[in-house]
Write a protein that binds this DNA or RNA. Sequence first.
DNA 1: TATTTAATTTAGATTTATCTAAACCTATTT
DNA 2: AAATAGGTTTAGATAAATCTAAATTAAATA
Lengths: 220, 220
Amino acid sequence: MLNYSTSEENYIKAIFHLQKQDGTVTTNELANELKTKPASVTDMMKKLKAKKLLNYQPYQGFRLNNDGTKVALGIIRRHRLWEYFLAEKLKFTWDEVHEVAEDLEHVSNKKLIDKLDEFLGFPRTDPHGDPIPDANGKIEISRKICITELPLHTVAIVSSVSDQSSEILELLEHKKITIGTKVEVKKKFDFDKSMEIRIGRQPVFTISDRLAQNIFVQSN
Amino acid sequence: MLNYSTSEENYIKAIFHLQKQDGTVTTNELANELKTKPASVTDMMKKLKAKKLLNYQPYQGFRLNNDGTKVALGIIRRHRLWEYFLAEKLKFTWDEVHEVAEDLEHVSNKKLIDKLDEFLGFPRTDPHGDPIPDANGKIEISRKICITELPLHTVAIVSSVSDQSSEILELLEHKKITIGTKVEVKKKFDFDKSMEIRIGRQPVFTISDRLAQNIFVQSN
DNA sequence: TATTTAATTTAGATTTATCTAAACCTATTT
DNA sequence: AAATAGGTTTAGATAAATCTAAATTAAATA
Ligand SMILES: [Mn+2]
Ligand SMILES: [Mn+2]
Ligand SMILES: [Mn+2]
Ligand SMILES: [Mn+2]
């Protein structure tokens, strides 16, 4: 396995997260995700294409190929194992781990990561509930859906939350929404797409669509 | 505290290790240590001088100032804490830890390192026997001397060994020379500066000057 | 189908870190 | 004091990653 620069790895991982099922990722989407400029994205896409990690034709968007996906899963494995370590061993709160893991994930020594995995007891999910790929890059497919797609009056369990910004995580913590929380949608409003939800036996309260988009549940 | 690039940090740390007591470090010495070219060193010295981390006048060598020393001690703290973690928690052998720590040391998140320190139980030395600076940059001054300076027939304890290359560490392991080993110099040869030493009650054997230079002992 | 708009790419700069080769100092030796 | 040899610095290139502004293309609209 070759080694990739921190910058290349950040692009590869971002593409992996953005490409859903069969669709392609656009230049602007990726630039927005990485807080960079479209011109920089185009440069990097040419480079990653030359390294045979993705399919890319000018103006047609891009998508990781098999090799690129393997690389992405390696980065995600490192990221999530470090997140687990930070939360479980170093007692970081779960909204702090992502930022630190964003750097640690780029130390790519296979032995280090496999020994870390063993030391942690081969955890299956990170502190946000996302599955951790194993040493061969195999990852559990999770049956999670966004809470916005959950039918009314159906109790589900929060299985993961977006980890993209610590602002969101701070809000979730304040609302006492965390992994494992039992939640039920009581009402949805078309006007602003906000929804009223209930956690356990607490009073019903409202969350914005923006927040709901970042909460994922396991319906069974 | 500002942040420095990986490259800047590697230069700063190398200068710290090369500058003994009151002397200055030369361009060639540093280029040799970092396996780079003298021209690259000169470029970086200008940069680090501009950042007020060292004293440097063209052709006169250089030396870290107070601020530079503080930065160096921070890097060394990270390096040695990770080495301890790798050896103690992940069960790396002590000749494998340096290389990995060389990368991990550049993840400079103060909270991460202070929590790691706490998790490890505030270790005082790394797996090579070198002291670990505390969160304030304070470091124990060790009374260690090189085995080449140890008087004949004086039993001493190996307190640290060079960790610069895994080749040396491999050799030391083969010879069963490790931290805590009791050692005594039986004879020194002027011709090639080799020496005969005895470990515990084993038969006397010879080590080269090149190797001896990398073995440090605590004479009492 | 022609036009307009929005997304994307290209062109040209900038910054950081590196190198080689040439020029330049400093110290030692004649 | 002049010559020489080492060590050091400068000059000029290169590669990676980024940017702004201009040019181009594709898609939507008239
Ligand atoms: Mn994360
Ligand atoms: Mn990252
Ligand atoms: Mn080390
Ligand atoms: Mn390093």
